[in-house]
Amino acid sequence: MENHIQNFIESGLLEAYVTGSASEAEEKEVLYMKNSYPQVKQALNELEIDLEKIAQHMAIAPPPTLWNRIESDFNEITIAPPQTPAKINRDERREQSNESKEPKYIEVEGESTHMRIHKSWKWVFAAVFVLGKIFLGFAIYFYLENRQAQQNIQELRQEIREIKRMNSK
């Protein structure tokens, strides 16, 4: 019997099963052997670990926005768990009204470094960006204008000084 199990393990059928290349009949045989013999189950577990090991070597982190794309699809078809109204007697209500004076929130320090905001904010950011560029343009323009004016004033002062000097002579 031991030989039979060993031959089965060494036949390569388990490898074919974990890589999805086994036929339907072979898959059934593997599942039967797995459930019947712990050695086969152990060998199969080891192969699954091997597959995960090779996948880890080739892993590529998905971009942070990718999950949002998946989740947005779920949001359209997900139902919230039904909210059942709780029965509250007067005493409980009084207790609740006392509690309500305290702020009702739980302090949570989020582990995620990302923040989700509403899509409409993109227009605000675009407007801020455009306005920023306009103000920058104005600032440069007025700076140059101011510099030009300063130069003109200097020249005029120079001319006045020269005229005064000539008059005094």
Binding site: A55, L66, I79
Partner: peptide
């Protein structure tokens, strides 16, 4: 779908998303 389905999917994504990509 329920919220639990989405949570379970997220857990799988966090664990295996990079491997699968």
């Amino acid at each position: 779908l329920t919220a639990n389905d989405v949570t379970a999917t997220r857990a799988l994504y966090d664990r295996y998303g990079n491997l699968l990509l």
